[in-house]
Amino acid sequence: MEAMNWPPEHSAVLRELRARGMSYTAIADTINARFNTAYTRNAALGRAQRMGLGALERPEPSLPGYLDPPRPSLMPEPLGAGRLREVRVDPRTDLLRGPDIFTGRVEMPVLRCAEVAPRHLSLLELDCGDCRYPYGGDADGESITFCGHPRRPGSRYCTPHFHLTRDLRSSAKPVLSDAWLAAIGLA
């Protein structure tokens, strides 16, 4: 960026055009046309600020109603003493305890797993033909390791992990039991 010193005649025109309320883009264009210079809008604005002229007053928004305050007729009436809503509180509901359905014991669904003992390789230890099925990473700070057994042709996983992720018979069964569905209100 090159430092530019404005000649006094340029500054005088800037002061005059600023007093007329012109935009800094128009001011820069006028000065450039009159004196054959190449000032930008930002150069004119910066010079005006250094001269203590300050910024122009912001014009009204071009979109009608954009910054207008809301009209009183469009604002909803506040709830007054005569317009109170009746709120019915169920005395059985204890917000801190939660609904009764969550306090009972719910049986967890049986998770499927592959019948393979993983090698627990890090990402850097994996070779091109190793299974990429991840293990770990569930807890904060727990590292993620990978199966590492030879992978199935055309897949990223070994054969047991391929079937685990692609078994349509098992994946067609609902993972959640009837008790879980009832707990969330879907049964």
Rank of each mutant, 00 (worst) to 15 (best):
D127T: 15
S155M: 11
D140A: 15
V89W: 11
E115N: 12
P69Y: 03
V106S: 10
R132C: 03
R85I: 07
F146V: 00
S171L: 14
G137W: 00
I144N: 01
T145D: 00
L168E: 15
L67Q: 08
D167A: 02
E86F: 09
G141F: 04
R71D: 06
V116E: 02
A139S: 13
S143F: 02
P70S: 02
R88W: 10
R152A: 06
R97C: 05
L126T: 07
D130R: 04
R156L: 15
Y157R: 10
A114M: 03
L126Q: 10
L95C: 07
L63G: 13
D100V: 08
T165V: 13
P118M: 03
G141M: 01
V89D: 11
P64L: 10
V106M: 11
I144D: 04
V110Y: 06
H161T: 02
C113K: 15
L111I: 08
P118G: 07
L84M: 14
R119V: 00
L74I: 08
R119P: 01
D100L: 10
P72I: 01
D94F: 02
G104H: 05
E86T: 14
S171Q: 14
T159S: 12
T165Q: 14
P99F: 12
T145F: 03
P99L: 13
A114W: 04
L123V: 06
G82L: 05
D68R: 06
P72V: 08
P91C: 01
I144F: 02
D138T: 06
L126E: 09
P76Y: 06
L121T: 05
H149Q: 12
P61N: 13
F162T: 02
P78W: 06
V87H: 15
R112M: 05
P134C: 01
E107T: 11
S170E: 14
K173P: 02
R88G: 10
H120C: 03
D127E: 15
P69L: 11
R132F: 02
S62N: 12
R166L: 06
G148Y: 00
T93C: 05
D138R: 11
P64W: 05
H163T: 01
A172D: 10
S155L: 07
G98I: 11
R156N: 13
E86W: 12
R166W: 10
S171G: 08
D140W: 12
R88A: 11
T103M: 06
Y135I: 00
L168T: 08
D140S: 14
P70R: 05
H161G: 01
T165C: 13
R97V: 12
R85G: 11
R71G: 02
P160E: 03
T159V: 13
R169Q: 10
M75I: 14
C131M: 04
L95A: 13
R166I: 02
L96W: 11
D90G: 00
F162E: 06
L164H: 01
D127A: 15
T165P: 04
C147T: 03
D140C: 06
P91M: 07
G80L: 07
D167T: 01
G82D: 13
R132S: 04
P150D: 14
